[in-house]
Nucleic acid binder design. Structure first.
Lengths: 226, 226
DNA sequence: TTCATAATTCGATCGTAGTCGAAGCATTCC
DNA sequence: GGAATGCTTCGACTACGATCGAATTATGAA
């Protein structure tokens, strides 16, 4: 009768439109305050506060106090992966509330998925690393090869620091626009940070879009060929 | 504000405990009837029917009519992947429930489905006839070839008698233990009757189990190879 | 201190969705 | 043919949760 994990609780948390809007907003990767999230969801602050408490109790969000602000963010990578999976299915069903506008192609090209690169460029990144045998694919698992380690160290990324964290370095994440996997995990995060620090790309305010500069785009495509 | 796919609808569908129980049950891979699903969810048939209609409208389930039964199953692989992702997260939160026990192996091996053979042996029977080009598959329809007609007449089955009845001779029937089609229709019935009359197998009282004798099992496997 | 901003808590209202009994179809069994 | 089974539809009841106004707490600024 009752077997397996309890998905109803998680589902009901995501199932409320207001909460779903907040979670979608937080998929941008930035921590947001209750006031900002209330605006995203189109509800009052009181209601938002109640929702956020539930999401936190359910383990989907974490909260960080900072002065008189409280910053909410997705609790773990796993939350982002799960939401992306839901989005993938919803998108395949044609359940998109987003009116097809000019921002849509930009979103499909490159966007942030919690903390790593997604969209066409995100998929290309993983494909390129796999093609160069710098990442090995075993089923759904990814592993960095020796060549891969040297490669990212050459980019100036501290491999030992990545290894210290308990999070997996490489991880697949299903891309809802491309419907293929892109690179998540601490390496995925580090690479996106690297691109931004190098000035190749930057986050667009108030959305998940990642804008590549002209030179940044050229460098990215050259560095990660197919 | 509102970008990306609408995950709230999907979430709310999964969010109801009764529906979550049904989906969990269907993760087993077998197609189930509303009655069975109602039992899994601990609700009445009426309520289950309402839930199933919603899940189907949401694209999570598909339905297949079979006589006076309706078999529900997960609509696509993507649904399973999505649920798996949710379960993974729920499990990591420690939100686990009971563990499933092994079902009756004899039922899985061979049982009666109305009047024809089902289970592992039932699926094998159809597979073998198809492999020998004695039955042709066109989508969900089955057709007996000339070779097939000669084959069953050689077994002593009266083909003309089968043709006289209004019922289709060959028909697919979804096997709940194997989750694949087996052979139904008047031919399916005639074959099971044949096996029993030959003494190869007999029905077990008070259950749906079909017990093959030692010699019967040997003869069956030899006559219908894979 | 006093005021302003940020956020939570409380309480009341209101809709909606889950639930089941009863009735209505559809199909199969005898 | 009629009875039995499987399932859906309809209608009514109920309960839970989303929502917001008002009051409360907490932090920072003047």
């Amino acid at each position: 009768m009752k077997e397996g994990p309890d998905i109803a609780l998680i589902g009901s948390l995501i199932g409320d439109p207001a909460r779903a809007n907040m979670l979608t907003a937080l998929m941008g990767g930035q921590a947001l305050t209750p006031t900002e999230l209330a605006a995203h969801a189109g509800i009052t602050l009181q209601t938002a506060s109640s929702h956020l408490a539930k999401l936190e109790a359910g383990g989907l969000l974490t909260q960080r106090k900072q002065g008189r602000h409280r910053y909410y963010a997705l609790a773990e990578d796993e939350v982002g992966l799960m939401l992306e999976s839901l989005m993938g299915f919803a998108a395949s069903r044609g359940l998109t509330r987003h009116r097809p506008g000019p921002r849509d192609p930009a979103l499909r090209k490159a966007r942030v998925c919690y903390n790593h690169l997604a969209g066409d460029y995100g998929v290309r990144l993983l494909d390129s690393l796999v093609a160069a045998r710098q990442i090995e694919v075993t089923g759904e698992d990814l592993a960095l090869t020796d060549a891969g380690r040297h490669r990212i160290e050459a980019l100036g990324i501290d491999y030992d620091a990545l290894q210290k964290s308990r999070r997996p370095i490489c991880r697949t994440c299903l891309d809802w626009s491309e419907r293929r996997s892109h690179l998540a995990g601490s390496l995925g995060e580090a690479l996106l940070t690297h691109f931004i620090e190098e000035g190749w790309a930057k986050r667009e305010k108030g959305s998940r879009v990642i804008r590549f500069s002209h030179n940044g785009e050229r460098a990215f495509l050259e560095l990660f060929p197919l």
